[in-house]
Design a protein around this nucleic acid. Structure first.
Length: 762
RNA sequence: UGCCCUGUAGCUCAAUUGGCAGAGCGCCAGUUUCUGGAUCUGGAGGUUCAAGGUUCGAUUCCUUGCGGGGCAACCA
């Protein structure tokens, strides 16, 4: 696969790399792209495809294409096919093409198992009652009266549901978790619903019940041996449920885990299926493959190549922040891709006739297809003959009766190059009764035909086509579909439609194009990249789609001169003022807080301790052994808690005595403050005494000579920085400390390092 | 009366896991040019959301506040 400009890193790559290094799945990486076949694929899918398949590729892993077809009412074969086409068009080959519906039988067996284990039950409440019972985001739910139904009864009902003996909505299967769970997804989520009369595009009427997303997704991942299950951000609240189901059916570690990233949004377009459908149904666009659509089909018909789409996905990057990517980035990726493969030819989209008065016989030029700075693709023709006769078409926009400042094109009395030809000077023009220019007159300087004679400097060059030889053509000039950067944030996104998103122009193209393959991509010089519309173009009626325009410095300059540049106003800074750390404490907690503060514990630390009984217990245990409550508070609240990470205090093997010993070692100078974290981590995980931990970790006090050696090494390795420091860049001192700490033995005391550094650098 | 995710340049993302705040795109200049493209060079642009705390040292750890997003479908 072609090399994309790859980002230095993204967090998903980091996670996978860490797992591979740790040998978590014996180094295996298995991804999957899991679309629901209920709509046409778009740029967002493209990024997901790039991410999943690309990541798998990078780590020598596999990636499946799995259709998440658990909802028979919205899904179809047609969509599934479009999705698979998109994957292959983007250049990826799935290790396997699979379907969630392949696993229905297995999922059913697991569901029975959950019922037997008392982890699931058939609920016979109405849909409304279930909704009611779920509570709200701020209030706990209530348990269903069917929650304790005997397993045999649930089993029997489920079997009947499966066979279609119960009408839609009469029963559901629910997991038995916790109706008061702060995460709504965990309040006895539904596993199966009845869709008795639905016709699934693959399983037909075999099933009368269908699994819900959560009860299907992780299981599919597990069956396929997926290692990293990547999905979009809104599923982060589903992750606990994903893991709960895997636990419930007994999938052991190492197993599949879910990670979330932010879906792609692009400036001036919409990406939701609903909105895209509205554009099609309201006739705003010509169809799902209209070149203005952000669909894969649209991009494809526009003439964009998969290389550009992949490049764009890579450039856009991956993170957990919802943002909106500049359209300029997409356009850049497209231009960058086409720049090296599109031959340059000439076409005039808005023609006006130019008569060269001193030319009678046409001149035939040998015009290069490629500019000097592009190396042509292998085997590509290098040039074509071009007839330049007395009359040619030029672009209406390239002639001005009264040229504005900075004009480099034609106007009365001025000179320009006719691209590949000679310099002409405008001698006059004709207009019709409305004042519109109908014809431009010029004389050629034939001496310039073979090159630029000494001392002649003509700034501009305009493109043209022979009026005698050119072929008529229709040009579809596409622009952004929406005139607003974020149409989906509007009350009605349809009000933001850009009326000029498609301009159809009738003009002329040079005859050489009729000899090219129909899917040839061109740059029409000074206009943009084009190709023939794959549906509507015919040899005797050429239709060209603009893939992307060229960057137009002149248009930008005139536009920005017109619109008065508005300066961003500085955001008003709201003074926050001093804060009471105890402000959000309850009455009781506040009392505890005050007592701690009086004893000398820092206020921030006291506030933390007041809300956490377990932590406060540990603190008291430490404080009773050292006579400095402030230090004990800092150690427990900051160092200990950080070292603890995600584990619980109860799981810590470190005692109050151990922590007190650590403080003692710091005080006596036997342990650097810098190494406290490592020692604590060791004590928490392994137990033992503080002294032993220092010993095993080798972070004991470091003698002066070793520090001096590290300092010298650090300074020697960064001579330029030393010079800058000596020249007055004081802030580099911290940099040297860091460099030295990295080289010195683990237990080195930064204060000692600084002392040596100061001496060496003075 | 909640829970989760998340705030770094105009935009999209980095920052060797606590040690000189960077890149691409965009923008502005200059270079080059028979494409106002491309190339090449340079530049501007930062209170790392804010205030406290821990630390020799904080974009990174802690606390609180503020902003953005998500969660109450028998959708995914």
């Amino acid at each position: 696969m072609a090399d994309e400009t790859s980002r230095p890193d993204n967090f998903l790559r980091d996670i996978i790399a860490r797992d591979v290094d740790a040998g978590t799945h014996a180094g295996r990486v298995a991804m999957r792209f899991p679309p629901e076949p209920n709509g046409y694929p778009h740029l967002g899918h493209a990024q997901s495809i790039w991410l999943n398949f690309g990541l798998a590729e990078q780590f020598g892993g596999t990636c499946n294409l799995r259709f998440d077809d658990t909802n028979p009412e919205t899904e179809s074969e047609e969509y599934a096919r479009a999705l698979e086409d998109a994957v292959r068009w983007l250049g990826y080959d799935p290790a396997a093409v699979v379907y969630a519906s392949d696993y229905f039988e297995q999922m059913y067996a697991w569901a029975q198992e959950l019922i037997r284990k008392g982890l699931a039950y058939v609920d016979s409440q109405s849909e409304a009652a279930i909704r009611e019972g779920r509570g709200t985001v701020k209030e706990p739910g209530t348990e269903s009266p069917f929650r304790e139904r005997p397993a045999e009864e649930s089993l029997r009902l489920l079997e009947e549901m499966r066979r279609g003996e119960h009408p839609d909505g009469s029963h559901v299967l629910r997991a038995k978790i916790d109706m008061a769970h702060p995460n709504m997804k965990m309040r006895d989520p539904l596993m199966y619903r009845i869709r008795r009369d639905a016709h699934h595009y693959r399983t037909g009427t075999d099933w009368a019940i269908y699994p819900l997303y959560d009860w299907a997704h992780g299981q599919g991942d597990a069956i396929e041996g997926i290692t990293h299950s990547v999905c979009t951000l809104e599923f982060d609240v589903n992750r606990p449920l994903y893991d709960w189901y895997l636990d419930a059916i007994g999938i052991p570690e190492p197993r599949n885990h879910q990670y979330e990233f932010a879906r792609l949004n692009v400036e001036a377009t919409v990406m939701s299926k609903r909105k895209l459908r509205r554009l099609v149904e309201d006739g705003v666009v010509a169809g799902w493959d209209d070149p203005r659509m952000p669909t894969i089909a649209g991009l494809r018909r526009r003439g964009v190549r998969p290389e550009a789409v992949r490049q764009f996905a890579a450039l856009a990057g991956v993170s957990k922040v919802n943002g909106r990517t500049d359209l300029a980035l997409l356009e850049h990726a497209i231009r960058d891709d086409l720049n090296g493969i599109a031959k340059r030819v000439m076409a005039v989209t808005e023609p006006v006739r130019l008569v060269i008065e001193n030319v009678d016989e046409a001149v035939t030029l040998d015009a290069p297809y490629w500019p000097h700075d592009v190396t042509p693709p292998e085997g590509a023709p290098l040039s074509r003959p071009l007839r330049l006769p007395r009359e040619v078409w030029i672009e209406r926009g390239d002639f001005a009766v009264e040229p504005p400042k900075g004009w480099r094109r034609l106007s009365p009395g001025r000179e320009v190059w006719l691209r590949h030809g000679f310099v002409i000077e405008c001698t006059g023009y004709e207009t019709d009764e409305t004042g519109a220019v109908t014809l431009v007159r010029a004389t050629a300087d034939l001496a310039t035909l073979t090159g630029d004679p000494e001392g002649r400097k003509v700034r501009g060059a305009i493109h043209w086509v022979s009026a005698e030889d050119a072929v008529p053509a229709t040009f579809r000039l596409y622009d952004r579909l929406f005139a607003h950067p974020a149409p989906d944030e509007l009350d009605d996104f349809m009000t933001a439609i850009n009326p000029e998103s498609l301009v159809i122009a009738e003009g002329w193209v040079e005859p050489s194009v009729t000899e090219d393959a129909a899917d040839t991509r061109y740059q029409f010089e000074r206009t943009g990249f084009f190709w023939q519309d794959p549906e509507d173009s015919a040899p005797d009626a050429l239709v060209f789609n603009q893939i992307v325009s060229l960057k137009d410095g002149w248009a930008k300059k005139s536009a920005s001169a017109a619109a008065n540049p508005q300066k961003e106003k500085p955001k008003p800074s709201v003074p926050t003022g001093p804060r009471d750390p105890a402000a959000s404490l309850s009455e009781d907690q506040r009392e505890t807080y005050s007592a701690l503060a009086v004893r000398g514990v820092g206020r921030e630390e006291a506030a933390v301790l007041a809300t956490d009984d377990a932590l406060r217990g540990l603190f008291e245990s430490v404080a009773s052994r050292v006579d400095d409550p402030a230090e004990a508070g800092n150690l427990v609240v900051h160092d200990f808690r950080r070292a603890l990470g995600d584990s619980a205090i109860a799981d810590s093997a470190a005692s109050g005595q151990d922590l007190a010993d650590v403080l003692g070692l710091v005080r006596s100078g036997d342990l650097s403050r810098n190494a406290v974290g490592d020692v604590l981590q060791h004590l928490i995980a392994e137990g033992g005494t503080a002294a032993e931990a220092v010993e095993t970790l080798g972070v004991g006090a470091v003698d002066e000579s070793a520090i001096a050696a590290a300092v010298d090494e650090a300074l020697a390795a960064n001579p330029a920085e030393v010079e800058r420091y000596r020249a007055g860049e004081q802030k580099l001192f911290g940099f040297f400390v860091g460099q030295t700490m990295r080289r010195a033995p683990k237990g080195a005391d930064p204060k000692a390092v600084q002392a040596v550094l100061r001496e060496r650098l003075s």
